[in-house]
Every structure is written in C-alpha cells, then in structure tokens.
Design a protein around this nucleic acid. Structure first.
Lengths: 258, 258
DNA sequence: ACAAATCCTTCCGGTGAGCGGAAGACCGTT
DNA sequence: AACGGTCTTCCGCTCACCGGAAGGATTTGT
C-alpha cells in the first residue's frame, strides 16, 4: 500500500493524494478508508473530501461512502489522448476485432508505463487487467515494448531501471531487452508471450501521428493456444498504416514530460 | 465569461477554478488565458498550474500551452456513471442506431442539467452540441424533460427557476412546462421539437436502474424533416425496457445531492 | 445489556504555506 | 527601439489550512 505519494506538501498535492486513493478496485470508499490509503490524518481528509464534494469532484452516495464525481469525468474527456486518439482509432479497432476476434487494445506512453486508452473485447476473449485507464509495464507487454523501442534513449534507460518480474517468462535482463528492442524497431512489430500473465500472448505495432512520430501502439491479445502470429501481424499492420495516415492528417500528437 | 466560480476561498476551490477554465472549446490554453478565464491573478495561476502539472492533472504541450492531463482522464473513468451505465448501455445504443440511423444519446441528471454520457452519431446525422460531457438544459431537450418529469419536486422547482430561451419554440412558461411534464410521465416518453436548436427534433424515454428508480434517459435526435415519432418511440421503448432490466440486475444506480 | 471498536463530525489555536504585487526576462509585432 | 504580449522568479505579510482532542453516531463482539 503506497502511502508516500507525490509532494503532500501543497494543498493540491494533498487533494490529489485523496483522489489517488481511488482506483479501479477502490471506486467506492468510506472516509476512513480514504484516509488510510492516502496516509493523511482523518481530520484533514474529512475537510478535503468536503471541499472536493462541493466542487463535484467527488460524490457522496446514499450509503455515506464516496465516489469520483461527474466533474472528474467531464474534465477527463478533455484530455487530448482520449478525445482525439480514441475517437479516430475506435472504428479501426472495431474492424480489427471483426476480423481477428481477439481483444484489441491501443495504448500511449504515460511516464514509464503504457496507458491503455481503449480496448475492445468480446465475451470469448480472456479477461486480463488491461481495461481502459490501466497502466501496464513497458517491458512485459507487446504494446509497451513498441512504445519503448520507438521511444527516446532516456525513456529506455528510465524504464530499464525497474524490470519487475511477473511470470517466469518476463524479460528482466537488460541486454536481452535491448537486443529485442532493436529487432522490434527493424521488423516493425513486437511480440510478447506470457510475460505479463500466463496463457496470454500479444503483439503490437506502432501508430504514427503528427510529424511522423510514434504516438501510440496498437495491439492484439489472444490465448496462447490459438495464436497465429503472422496473420495477426498482417492484419494489424494494414489497419495501423491506415490509422496512422488519418492521425497524421488530423494532426494528432503533442505531448511532453515534466 | 463567468469568472465567479464556486468558493475560490479554499485552495482546492482555486485549483478547480483553474481546471474549470478548460472546456470542449478551450482544451488547449496558455497560462494567461487560464488566468483570464478563471478570474485569478496570474501569479496564483502560475503556481497552481505548476502544482497541477506536477500531479499529472495538467500537461504542458510542446508549444508551452497547457491541456488536461492523463491523470484526470484516468480518474474520470472511475466515475460510476461512466464505467457502469455507459458500459452496459453502449451495445443497446448501437442496436438502436442500426435501426433508426439517427443520433442516439443517453444522459443523466447533473445538478439541474442533463449530462450527456454517450452519444452515437453517423456522418449523416446533424451536428449538434450534444457530445459526451455536454450539459444540456433540462427544459429544452427530450432527454432533459424525461429526467425532469420523473425527478423529485425539488428538482423541478430548481430547474424551473431558470428557463432560458434558446429558440422561438423553447417552452419558458412555467404552467405549460408543468402540464407537459405530467403528460410525459403518463405516456412514458418526451418530445421536443426545435426547442434547443432549429431543425432538430428529439424524443426521449426513461431508463430504470437499481430500485426501479429513473437513473437516465435515452433519446433519439433527428432532423425535423424526416421525423416519424411513433416509430421512434416504439424502437426506443423496446430497447429501453431491455436496457433497464439489465441495469436493474447489475444494480446500477446510486447518486445524491449536496 | 454493556463494552469496544468502528465510523463520522465539530471545535479551535498556532503557524507555515499560500498569496499576489513588483520586477524582469523573454518573445513576437509595428 | 519601443511596444504589447507572454512567462517566470523573488519575497514579506497574513490568513487559511492543519490536525489533535473531544464527542456523537453506528455497528460489532461478549
């Protein structure tokens, strides 16, 4: 339970410590739970939560607990990666899903993680943790490896500093990973087999935006059993180039790091 | 340009004044612009924006301006109306779109406005301002009227206090509106013709959730020319009852007011 | 039935974090 | 070169935030 968030010195820092106490598996929390998870004194949380509720950032449900409010949702829609990328990519992802019948996902770089922006999955597809909003490690997923391979030198160095081991197949050796990244860059796609979770294999290809920079990665996730990598790569590459063209035309792509 | 936001006394209040300076048509703003729109001193905005950027709530683009950051987007996904309602409703909305070929939208109550949660629109459909995240007036849209008709007495009174006039057909008379709300409640659907924008007509039906309470409204928007209200109502009602059943089973629905 | 352990809320005095004016470093434009 | 616009740093005053203490409201255990 990480309680040492950013700063916590400024009020906004504290406010976001409160908000950060919410995640996919903690969407509905009591005041005391928020205090515990954020590591802030109860009284302080009490006040902050009240202010945030007044702003509509939180909402109090009928049972007295708190949830993220509609203002957060409304503001979140304004994030460019959502409005722009998702909007354009969704139809293409649906096409891919029709053909491949496997889970399709698109992700962007967020710090040293891969942020899943959208995902299409059927009932047949395996249930992994890669819902929209999830932040997956770069070195253990195909989409992540793509973003890493086409990313800056600094990004690679930063990402390599924490190569967590998720399964027996996760690549944790720096040299091995660097070698693979080079191959990915030349052959234009990444492959990951049971490196994040057993039973799942995935491939990913880069998506280009404004100025021909890689702004996202498109991927397919499928059970190890019925994989047909060549076919999947072919399908992905066709859609990816069409999608990239459209993104470049609409001029999507402008980010930066603090 | 509303500069008198909520409070502005507390730090969180000020922080949200900054965030509130962003909307669909102001997604990309310079520091000075934010200061102007929020009504806060430039120096103050400067500090707040820095803190918010450090938290990932804002992001600085390569041209020096600011946008809503990915953390906001991630947090926004946790809002229950999005994750739950949207998730369940989307397939039904797509079905309706296949049949009717008109813009389909679903909205929930947000204060005294109707918050559009999701919308499906084709290229043929007319371009109105009802994108996801938009907050439409209750008395001038079909979905809004539904929420109002099935809402509490207090809500109706609060909404009636500000009956803005958008077109010549907008209903601004309190008695007329109340009469219509009664009819809507008995016949189970609402109709609005050119009350928000000329050329557009819309109908709406209620959607039920946990405890058989009305939690949302489903609507169709079409050009006035090719309207066929009876058919539209029929289509909507079928989908609405199916969707309601599913929502009730999954137990969606829990809100409250400050 | 009581006690114990939760939970949430209000009160209040000290203090340090937030405030914002002033000043200056930058652009571009006329 | 003087202007109008942007962003940034500096710094002292003050007031809004902080959080312990205390008490009410519920739920749980014995």
């Amino acid at each position: 339970m990480a309680k040492a968030e950013l700063d916590q010195k400024s009020v906004t820092g504290r406010a976001f410590s409160v908000l950060d106490a919410f995640d996919a598996s903690h969407r509905h929390q009591t005041l005391a739970a928020i205090a515990r998870r954020s590591g802030l004194p109860l009284t302080t949380v009490h006040r902050l939560v009240h202010e945030l509720t007044a702003q509509g950032a939180l909402i109090r449900t009928s049972d007295g607990a708190y949830e993220i409010g509609s203002k957060m949702w409304r503001l979140g829609l304004l994030a460019s990666l959502h409005s722009d990328l998702r909007e354009v990519a969704l139809p293409y992802m649906e096409d891919i899903y029709q053909i491949a019948n496997d889970a399709v996902q698109i992700g962007v770089l967020d710090g040293v993680r891969c942020l899943i922006v959208e995902r299409i999955a059927g009932s047949r597809t395996l249930e992994v943790v890669s819902k929209p909003g999830a932040r997956l490690p770069l070195h253990a997923t195909a989409v992540g490896k793509v973003l890493m391979a086409f990313g800056s030198k600094e990004l690679q160095d930063a990402a390599i500093k924490s190569l967590d081991k998720y399964t027996t197949k996760t690549i944790t050796d720096e040299a091995d990973l660097k070698k693979q990244l080079k191959i990915i860059k030349t052959q234009g796609f990444a492959h990951s087999e049971e490196e994040l979770a057993m039973g799942a294999t995935s491939i990913g290809v880069p998506i280009y935006g404004y100025g021909n920079r890689v702004i996202a990665a498109l991927g397919l996730v499928t059970p190890v059993a019925n994989r047909d990598i060549e076919r999947m790569v072919a399908v992905l590459k066709v859609s990816a180039s069409a999608l990239s063209k459209k993104l470049i035309l609409s001029g999507v792509g402008s980010l930066s790091a603090p």
